[in-house]
Amino acid sequence: MKKLASDTPRARRGMTVVELLIAMTITVMIGLAMATVLTSVSRGLSSTNSERSALQRANVLSHRLTSYTQSALAIIEADDRGLAMWLHDESGEGRVNLLELRVFWVDEVGQTISIERIVFPVAWTLEEIDTANTLVTSIEDPFVVIAQQRALGYTETSLLIDGMAAVNFIPAESTAAESSRFAMIVDLPIETNHIEEILLSVALPMHQEPQ
């Protein structure tokens, strides 16, 4: 009778030390490769999230600034300190009064843009307010003017946006007051030592040069 292969007891063969070492080495190499891939993916995701966050901040800045510039009359000064804006002409004189002034401060150290405006005490009468609501002449520095009012306690500041490394305003004409358009170059910090530049257009459709 023929013996079937299944009837023959199998010779039990273990692993040699060499085979074991090779298997362990291959496993470790695969593990290291996977760890490297996962680390790279994690870094990539982190970078992508930072970029997205920075662009969203730029988007917020654009929308918040537009809510002012849509009806603003002029930007009377623009430099590395920020923007001084003539928001409206309540007095109807065609000139900038204190209450019509808004100053956007750029803080490169704190990476913020904040907006400051004049707020006179609520207890004041209309006559007192009219008296205090003086003109900001073209020879005066609006940033200095508002700083003086701040020293008297007559201003209010609120944060517009944070996470901006630097902002540069480039007017379309030779002076800010003449310009109805500005190119705003915003430096967005993405990660350590990486800055991304974005250009946002600042447009004043209601532009009117102050007298």
């Binding site: 730029a58 358009r181 946002l200 257009s201 459709p205």
Partner: peptide, 11 residues
């Protein structure tokens, strides 16, 4: 950003 910027400038 680019589209919004150009439209604002044209206005």
């Amino acid at each position: 950003f680019a589209a919004d910027g150009m439209l604002a400038e044209l206005m």
